[in-house]
Simulated scan of single mutants.
Amino acid sequence: DSMARGTVRLAHPGESRNVHQSVTLLEAIEEFRFDALIGGARRDEEKARAKERIFSHRDSFGQWQPKDQRPELWTLFNTKLQPGEHFRVFPISNWTELDVWQYIAREAIALPSLYYTHQREVVERKGLLVPVTELTPLKPGEVAESRDVRFRTVGDITCTCPVESLAATPEQIVLETLAADVSERGATRMDDKTSEASMEKRKKDGYF
Rank of each mutant, 00 (worst) to 15 (best):
V154E: 05
L175F: 01
L129C: 10
G40S: 13
E171Y: 02
L25P: 01
Y207H: 11
K139F: 10
K203H: 14
E142T: 13
E171I: 01
E124D: 09
P13Q: 09
P162E: 03
Q82P: 02
D59E: 07
T160H: 05
P91T: 03
F55V: 08
E164G: 13
R17W: 05
L135A: 14
Y207A: 06
K201G: 08
R189M: 15
K203E: 12
P131F: 05
R43I: 06
I38D: 05
E107Q: 09
V132W: 01
D192H: 12
V130R: 05
Y207P: 00
C161D: 02
E171R: 11
I104A: 04
E52K: 06
E164N: 11
V100H: 00
V182R: 07
D99G: 03
V130E: 03
G186H: 06
T7M: 07
P66F: 09
L166M: 12
R9A: 12
Q21G: 09
E107S: 06
S56D: 09
H20I: 05
R70Y: 04
F32A: 07
E45F: 14
S22A: 15
S198Y: 10
F55P: 02
R17V: 10
G127L: 07
A197S: 13
K80W: 14
S56E: 09
A41T: 06
L10W: 11
L98C: 04
T117L: 04
F77K: 09
P71C: 09
F55E: 04
P131I: 02
S183V: 06
G39A: 08
L166S: 13
H86W: 15
T75R: 14
K67T: 12
R147W: 13
E30A: 15
N94Y: 09
R9Y: 06
R120G: 02
K126R: 13
L178P: 04
L26A: 01
S195T: 12
V19A: 15
W64G: 00
I157R: 11
T153G: 01
K139D: 10
C161N: 05
T79F: 10
S165M: 06
R106E: 12
P71K: 10
N78C: 11
E45L: 13
H86P: 02
L129M: 14
C161H: 00
G206E: 03
L98K: 01
Q102W: 00
V100T: 08
T177C: 13
D181F: 12
Q82T: 11
L26K: 02
V100G: 00
